[in-house]
Structures are given as C-alpha cells and as structure tokens.
Design a binder for these strands. Structure first.
Lengths: 220, 220
DNA sequence: ATATATACCTCCAGTGCTGTATGTAAAGGG
DNA sequence: CCCTTTACATACAGCACTGGAGGTATATAT
C-alpha cells in the first residue's frame, strides 16, 4: 500500500492539520504523536517518516503560515512614499489577516497560549522571532523617516512612536489570541489603531481602508 | 525529624522557590515534582504533603505575588480626582513594579512563556485573569469619566483610548517578558507611555514621576 | 522484469513520571 | 507520660510516551 508522491504530500498535510487540532486542544506538551496520528487517520510510523519528532512538527506548522504572511505583509513595505501611511496600511493588513484567516489565528494561538517558549524549541520559534524583529526594525525605520520629514506630531519621537506602536500591535494580538476576543473585535481594533496613528502624525488623513485591499486568498 | 510549624512553612516557601526556578528553567510541563523536590532539598513526599499536584503548585506561585500587586496597584485607583492622571500613575506603577521586583518578573514570565493556557489550568489562571479584567474595567471607567469631563483630545473616544492603552500595556509586558528586554528598558517604556497618555488628553501636564512613589517594599 | 527506494505499519524495549500506600520520628496536647 | 497528629521519607504500582527495529507492499527508475 505504498502511496504516490502526491498522496504522500496529502498525508503530510493531513498530519499537520491534525497536529494543529491536537495542539490547540490539549497543548503542545501533552499532545502525543499517537493522538495526532489517530486524528490524522495514520499511525505514528507515518509521522516519524515525515518528521523527526514533535518539535519538527511544530516548526513545520509555523512554516506553513509563514510564506503567506511574508507575501501579504512584505508588499506593504515596498511603497516608500509616505512612511506613516505605510505603517498604517501594514498594521491594517495584519488585523485583516488575523481577522479573516482562521488558520493564521490558530497557529498564532498555539504560539501564544499552547506551547512553552524554551531553548529546545528555539528552531521552531526562529521564524516567528525573525518576523517579530522585522516588524520592529521596519517600524523604527519608518518612524525615523517620518521624523526627518517633520511628519511627527509634537510629543512624539521616532523612538517613542515606534515603541508604542510595537507594544500596541503585540498586545492587540496577544489579547486577541489569549482571551478569544469576538471575531468582530477587528473593527474596534481598527478604529483604535487609526486613532493612534492619527495622533502620531501631524495631519495624516485617516481612511477606513488599507490601500492594498486585494487579498483574494484571505477573503474566505 | 518532624519539623515545627514554622519550619514547615519554611519548607513550603522553599518548595515554591524551587518550583519557580525549575518552571523558568525547563517549563511547567517538563518540570517533574522529583526535580522540584531535589531543587528544594526535600523529597516528593514533602511536596505532596503541601500541595495536591503540580497545578496547585502553580496556583500557589501565582497567589504569592498576587497580594503584593493588589496592594500596590489598587491604591492608585482610590484617588478619583483626575481620571487620566490616575491611569497614568497606575501604569507607571506597573512598570515600576516589573522593573524593580524580579520575583514579579519571574512569575509573569512563567505565565507568558513557560506554561500552556489550558482549561485544566483554569484555576491557576483565575487570579491572573481577574487582574486582567480589573485592569480593563478600570481603564474603561476612567476614560469614560475623562470623556464626560471633556478631557479627551480630538480623535479619541473612551472606547478607543482604553482599548489602545489596554493593548499597549499588554504588549509592553508581553514583549518585556518574552524577549528579555534590557532592564533599563523601563525608562524608554515610561517615556513612550507618557507620550501616549499625553496624546489622549487635551492638555495634561506630563511629569516624570508617579504621584504615589512610595513603594518601600519594591525599592530593593 | 528486476531492483531499489519509498511510504508507511507493527511491535518492543526502555524510560520517566504520577499518585498512593505505607513507614517513621518527632511535635504538641491533655 | 501517653496518644494523636504532623511533616515528612520511602517504596511501589502503573501508565503513557518515545524511539527504533523490523516488516511489507507498492511506486518508480533502469
């Protein structure tokens, strides 16, 4: 009963789906490969064929959503015209991404509330960490350009503004995933974000929609 | 070799200290009672005498810092004169608390990065959850009073301002504990917080110090 | 057509942890 | 001074999980 290459890939995806389900259900540490295998309709042998161990499974789960995020989010930062506008668009896209794609929400919920952040898991968290660092770095650069262009409102510096937005975004996602905000919480978060961004800038016009609102793969 | 009552209490505290150490080191799920006992210089028998199981140990660890937090933080909210000022003082006290008390940082770091947020652990998280809810509720009330008093700047409502600050504080602590910010990160966070609060208000004077700056038990 | 690599499954040995039951020696009350 | 309770230590039973060895049948290359 050996499978073809495409069947094998299908099995791999089913295992990843099952792992997500079990991780969310009982947490990464308590999740046994036996239980994941049962959920996927295979045996532990299949899992060990595709993945070395539980940690590699976790890494693969993270990697599955990583590409999507990079594609959606990197696009925003290509446009260098108006830095504050760019940051706002980026953040709105993040909210849009988490609001519309349950897969993304599940994976990040696993990171935040269903696993322990230990050195042995470092490889699994490498992607997430690099995305976080990229976000911080992009914020810093954008606000520095805004500062040099004289766009920042009184009372704000590039440092304080980027720190504030960084913490705001982190806390937003953390609360969302940890405490199961309502699904339409995205709306109120959007409004709060726009108020925050407006207070950063001198006279930035606030619109209700991000400029890059074509996310065909997310509007499901 | 039976101990006296005070010796027993000392043992209990040593077990809690050991549990904190082991939890931070290898995470709650991988931490065995055997290892914790060894760290405390007792056997598992002693742990089972004082606590029913690992979950109760975790609950006890949280409870140990809870009283301190309530004492320090509740005080700020007694003063109802200037709501925005009150909120600022409260937030500064939180930063001060986390900056000066390593014990607090350790326990919250365990919550954020060293354990899984599962229903079986619900009892352990009850305290933390109630503190979180209290924070959100206090923010909402304070900003509503500020709004009614016409203290909010243009572009902000009680809802958006409290949501924003709530996310900011959450993200601040989350990043601090998850990514091990430098110890003097507290300074930059204070500055960012003051800028944020300033932009909430119409013309609130920003001072560098909270009003209730007498924390004898924290300045160690 | 044959050989080999693939994609699994089954079984087994070993480990580590939990919870409990039992032992014990001293504290503390009457 | 005796009895009970306390504050542990020790010993035991049992489970759940991991990783690997070995099997098997089929896809795929030659």
């Amino acid at each position: 009963m050996r499978r073809t290459k495409s069947q094998s890939e299908e099995t791999r995806q089913r295992i990843l789906d099952a792992a997500e389900t079990v991780f969310i259900d009982i947490g990464v540490s308590k999740a046994s490969l036996e239980r994941i295998a049962a959920e996927a309709g295979v045996t532990r042998g299949a899992i060990y064929w595709h993945f070395a161990n539980k940690q590699e499974l976790l890494t693969a789960i993270f990697a599955r959503v990583y590409d999507l995020h990079v594609a959606v989010l990197a696009r925003t930062f290509e446009d260098a015209a108006d830095p504050l506008r760019m940051v706002l668009d980026w953040a709105l896209n993040v909210i849009e991404l988490f609001g519309s794609d349950e897969h993304t929400r599940t994976v990040y919920k696993i990171i935040v509330t269903r696993c322990e952040y230990l050195s042995e898991m470092r490889e699994a968290f490498t992607l997430q960490r690099s995305m976080h660092d990229t976000m911080v770095e992009n914020f810093r650069r954008a606000f520095e350009r805004a500062e040099q262009a004289g766009q920042l409102a009184d009372g704000w510096t590039a440092a304080t503004a980027s720190t504030t937005l960084h913490c705001f975004i982190s806390g937003l996602l953390d609360n969302w995933l940890r405490y199961d905000f309502d699904t339409d919480v995205a709306t109120s978060l959007r409004v709060a974000l726009q108020s925050l961004m407006a207070s950063f800038g001198r006279e930035v016009a606030v619109s209700a929609r991000p400029r890059n609102d074509s996310h065909p793969q997310l509007s499901g």
